[in-house]
């Protein structure tokens, strides 16, 4: 008859196993869109982590990196783009990136690490193309700052100038193949997804970036 007189029934054991602090998990990861979410543990990018996208010049590295942003940007996260000299803004819009929340620093003039560090305080995701070969110390400092601020750093590199430190997550484009009718329609990329720790269950996947709509698809 009183609320305290009959104790609550205990939570069943199997239900307790399925209960997780949902809000905590979502605030600790930044969401990914469809093809990528299936390849990554937690279906998102963990805050504070560094992601490396590596591809030979002109073989889809930039497309992959930009497509990683689309879901987060559509959900209202701010994005910074540093060191990408002439970003294809239309392609970004086609990928689903909300351009109202993107800050570009195309030519940081030798201060790319400082610019990236400055921008880290204001954005949730940061894409960086480091100049030729990034110094070990600058890379270390930037990654530490990213971990401290809870941002996600996405580094676009080429095999000839790799990122000097191991990343939490890596997307390596191993081959690219354009499909064309009367014009270029889509590009099939073979991407090896790897990383440290929980990202270890990696594999090779074929994704289409861009597809016929300019988006990313499996």
């Amino acid at each position: 008859m009183f609320a305290f007189s009959s104790p609550r029934p205990p939570v069943p054991e199997e239900l307790r196993a399925s209960l997780r602090p949902i809000t905590l998990a979502t605030t600790k990861t930044i969401p990914l869109s469809a093809p990528w979410a299936d390849f990554v543990p937690g279906r998102g990018l963990r805050r504070g982590s560094t992601v490396v996208v590596q591809a030979p010049a002109g073989h889809g590295g930039l497309s992959v990196a930009l497509s990683l942003l689309s879901e987060a940007s559509a959900r209202g996260h701010w994005v910074g783009v540093v060191g990408i000299e002439d970003p294809g803004v239309v392609a970004m819009a086609d990928l689903g990136i909300d351009l109202r929340r993107v800050l570009f620093v195309p030519r940081p003039r030798g201060a790319w690490a400082e610019s990236a560090a400055d921008l880290l305080d204001g954005v949730d995701l940061l894409i960086v193309r480091a100049p030729s070969r990034a110094a070990h110390g600058a890379a270390r400092r930037l990654m530490d700052r990213v971990r401290e601020r809870g941002t996600v750093l996405i580094v676009v590199t080429e095999p000839s100038a790799p990122w000097p430190l191991p990343a939490d997550l890596s997307f390596v484009v191993t081959s690219s193949q354009w499909e064309a009718t009367s014009r270029l329609t889509s590009r099939a990329l073979t991407v090896r997804v790897g990383g440290r720790g929980s990202a270890q269950r990696s594999g090779e996947h074929v994704v289409h970036v861009p597809d016929t709509q300019g988006r990313a698809a499996s």
């Binding site: 970003p87 803004v89 239309v90 800050l103 201060a111 610019s115 400055d118 305080d121 954005v123």
Partner: peptide, 29 residues
């Protein structure tokens, strides 16, 4: 505007101070 908008604006302002007026850009379609 939200708190994250304010944070982004503050970062952009700082960066503009460091690199100059033409350094931080936004896109327009």
């Amino acid at each position: 505007r939200s708190a994250s908008d304010d944070r982004a604006q503050a970062a952009a302002r700082r960066l503009r101070h460091r690199l100059g007026v033409e350094s931080v850009l936004v896109a327009e379609l």
